[in-house]
Amino acid sequence: MIIIETERLDLRELKLEDAHQLSKVLSDPDSMQYYSEPFTPEKVKNWINWNIENYQKYHHGLWAVVLKEIGQCIGDCGITMQKIDGDIVPEIGFHIIKEYGNQGYATEAALACKKYAFDILKFPAVYSYTTTDNIPSQRVAEKIGMQKLKSFEKNGQKQIIQVAVQHP
């Protein structure tokens, strides 16, 4: 079932059958350079199961990003509840297989998720957080209208929080 549709993408719930495609980004050392380590095949499946649990608990999570042109999953994007600097807040996150990078798919999916967070889920604000080195993700957040809110440390790494606020 499609949750969000954009011009080029469909976002739908992840399923275990997506593990092979999703591992192309989550297990890739380059794509996961801002994480502690690339995901093992088992961790990719755990990631999918965590999102399936989020769908049940929150009615949202990271969804499969399907490129309409080829009908194939090229990553994930969505809204998860994260503990950021002591608060539980909705965060927009994404991972796109690098061969599909720099084509605007992350921005397109993240913008659609921001709209969904405001219009459907009725969140007054949505957040993004990244390590200070993760400039590509910070740029996507800026492109969808997020602004730097503050910096903090998590697990010894400096993080940046960006926010978009729903205006009445």
Rank of each mutant, 00 (worst) to 15 (best):
N46T: 12
K45V: 09
D28F: 05
L26A: 09
D30W: 13
Y35N: 10
Q21R: 14
P41M: 09
H60L: 01
N51K: 14
K57T: 10
L26M: 08
I48L: 01
Q56G: 15
K43Y: 02
S31M: 03
Y55T: 04
L22F: 14
Y35A: 06
S31V: 13
D30Q: 08
N46E: 01
N54G: 13
I52H: 08
W50P: 03
N51S: 12
H59Y: 14
P41Q: 13
S27W: 05
N54F: 12
N49I: 03
E53N: 13
V25G: 12
L22E: 08
H20C: 10
N54W: 12
Y55A: 08
K24N: 12
V25K: 09
P38C: 04
E42G: 05
Y34L: 13
N46F: 05
K45R: 00
S23Q: 03
K45F: 05
Y55Q: 01
S27E: 07
D28V: 01
S23L: 03
Q33P: 14
P41Y: 11
S36W: 12
G61S: 06
M32W: 01
K57I: 02
H60D: 08
L22T: 15
L62T: 15
V44E: 07
H20G: 09
Q33I: 15
Q21L: 14
N46I: 01
V44L: 10
T40S: 11
H60T: 04
D18Y: 00
D30C: 06
Q56S: 15
H59Q: 09
S36T: 06
P41A: 10
Q21P: 11
S31P: 06
T40L: 07
V25S: 04
I52S: 09
M32F: 03
H59K: 11
Q33V: 11
S23W: 03
A19V: 10
I52D: 04
V44W: 02
W47T: 09
Q33E: 15
D18W: 05
N49S: 11
P38F: 02
A19M: 11
I48H: 02
N54D: 14
P38Q: 00
H60M: 04
Q33Y: 12
G61L: 04
M32E: 09
F39P: 02
P38N: 01
I48C: 03
P41E: 05
H60N: 00
P29M: 03
N46R: 08
G61I: 09
G61F: 13
Q56K: 15
L26F: 14
